[in-house]
């Protein structure tokens, strides 16, 4: 006991095999089982029973595809996964699987090809795990990301024919894509000829984002609307010019107020001081 290492070495091959068998059979978390080269189930363990609800005698000899959804069965997903494992030695993936009672869970799966000394395929080892909780959390994060995008890209009609899009926070490619689509849709639905993109709340841009903004403006122009960018911060001005982005065709204004002034001017409108107050004196 005090020196376990030599003890391990001294164990007979049979004893080691037995221990491995126990390790796999008793595993509570990882479903580990063997498949024949054709994909039929040959062994089963406790975790597999817990995860998929089938008892060993119910599944041994069945084809792996019984755990797959109907759509995946139709897509011949099992065959494709086994094919990949056979060719590259290993398949790794995630997907929806079906329990005995018909409920679904999200599984992380690894299929490894087993070959004998001559390199002949003798079957597959399959390890899978319930990742439903992680999947659910990922979905929540994705949902919140979407909500955030929705919230953070409002397109407002400031005046008849004038749209304002205040962009706040870091722009990534995905968000700039949303900005582009939102703006173009709003141009159509409101029939606006001028749109002000206020970027005073944007701390940094990279090449991709700058190009996206340029594309947005070009697309708006193709539709017959004009874009004005307002509130470019010093850091962004430096980045844009260093990146070699051609802004010569773009109207830029220092502040949203000046942007609005310009937008009104292109629509032949102007804000004037009311003379009423003076008249009352």
């Amino acid at each position: 006991m005090s020196n376990p290492k030599p003890a391990m070495v001294r164990r007979s091959g049979e004893e080691t095999a037995e221990r491995y068998r126990m390790l796999i059979e008793q595993s509570d978390d990882l479903a580990i089982y063997l498949l024949s080269p054709s994909g039929h189930i040959e062994t089963w363990n406790k975790a597999a029973e817990k995860l998929k609800q089938y008892k060993a005698q119910e599944v041994i000899g069945k084809h792996l595809s019984i755990f797959y959804t109907k759509e995946d069965q139709e897509r011949k997903l099992v065959e494709k996964e086994l094919e990949e494992a056979a060719q590259t030695g290993k398949f790794e993936g995630s997907g929806w699987r079906v329990r005995k009672d018909g409920s679904r869970y999200w599984a992380d799966v690894i299929i490894s090809a087993l070959r004998d000394d001559d390199g002949k395929l003798i079957g597959f080892a399959k390890v899978s795990r319930d990742a439903s909780e992680r999947k659910r959390q990922e979905e929540i994060i994705e949902q919140q990301k979407q909500d955030l995008i929705e919230l953070s890209t409002p397109v407002m009609q400031l005046w008849e024919g004038i749209l304002v899009l205040p962009i706040i926070g870091t722009l990534d490619s995905q968000r700039s894509q949303v900005v582009m689509e939102r703006l173009l849709e709003a141009i159509v639905s409101t029939g606006s000829e001028v749109a002000i993109l206020d970027v005073s709340g944007v701390p940094t841009v990279d090449t991709m984002v700058a190009q996206h903004l340029m594309k947005t403006m070009e697309a708006a122009k193709l539709m017959g609307a004009e874009c004005i960018i307002s509130g470019i911060r010093p850091e962004i001005a430096q980045t844009m010019v260093h990146l070699g982005i051609d802004l010569s065709t773009v109207k830029t204004r220092s502040t949203l107020a000046r942007g609005l002034e310009e937008a009104l001017r292109t629509r032949q409108l102007a804000i004037v001081k009311s003379s009423r107050g003076e008249g009352a004196k």
Partner: peptide
């Protein structure tokens, strides 16, 4: 021009320089 068309043209690099555009027939 519909947004999808505008996006496609821009993605293809066809920004139609020199072409005058307007939102609809009336504005055109």
């Amino acid at each position: 021009m519909k947004p999808a068309i505008a996006i496609t043209l821009v993605e293809m690099g066809l920004t139609l320089p020199g072409v005058v555009t307007a939102l609809n027939v009336e504005k055109g």
